[in-house]
Amino acid sequence: MVKWQLSLGILLLALAVLAIGLPHANGAWFAFWNASDVQQANEWILLTVYRIPEVFIAVLAGMALAVSGLLLQTVLNNPLAGPSILGLTSGSHLFVALVLMGGSFSSDLFQDVSTTFAAAFGAFVFGMLILLIATKMRSAVSLLLVGMMLGTFVSAFTGLLMSHADSMSLKSFTMWSFGSLRQVALDQIPLIASVFMVVFIAAFFLVKPLNAMVLGEHQAAFLGVNIVRNRWIVILIVSLLTGLVTAFCGPIAFIGLIVPNIVKMTLKTANHLHLMIASALIGGIVLLICSMLIRLLEPLIVLPINTLTSLIGAPVVLLLLLKKIRNA
């Protein structure tokens, strides 16, 4: 198990290095390393302004979404749960729309904080809503319908907001909603990294109760788990992680649903220490590969990240569903 995780870690690092050194158009690999002085200055700017933040946020977003998905799947006892399919991302969507198109903000820093806050808050509110509904719902599939309804409602409502918004805020919201791994600047990295670290460490304290919760809340309560408290902590962590990602990258679908399922199928363990580490690593790897694909395909076609993950993700989810129906 440890060997497996170690090799995943090495793969992630190797991919990250590769992604940083990926050539531009017809340029060379690792062009910033051996170029003439004038060129080097340009390459250096490209590296620090674009490459490093992009690779950083791709890895971090992948990790955050995959871990969020794992937490939701265990707490709701539903292998088809994930932050985007349940509508947590829709919550972020709604509140970011309200912030960007409902008011005006002069300072850039304030906008950073307020979009992040709005996204996290939106994910939290919708997370609570889903949790309340989930306690009344026994079927795994009907919960997904709830997520769909929330999504439909939100897109209708944002449509309404958009029709009344001025062109500037309309533009910034549209840009945000495409989803992109290139909206993060180098100086934002410390802030994002520190928030993420804190939340991620908090998630590791949930390992033990999560292990018991796979047996269902009834049995977990008999093992001494405080169900209500742990559910709240999970929703808080998931909404922070999802909100953070959605705020900086826009909505990214399917990673949170698929990655934990792949991990469970391969590792064949219900120990959440292993599941969480492996989900984080594979989540990072998957989104990193996506960002590299986008860069490689750039001369041919411009793919927003959300489009790419949906193109790959939707068929995979269909396969998972078919498998589940056959087993049921």
Binding site: K208, L215, H218, L267, K268, T269, A270
Partner: peptide
């Protein structure tokens, strides 16, 4: 009510008895 899980082995299931 517990129907079992594909990724939960019997060994791990028994180990959960030591949870408290």
């Amino acid at each position: 009510r517990f129907q079992g899980l594909e990724h939960l082995s019997t060994q791990e299931y028994l180990e959960l008895g030591r949870f408290p």
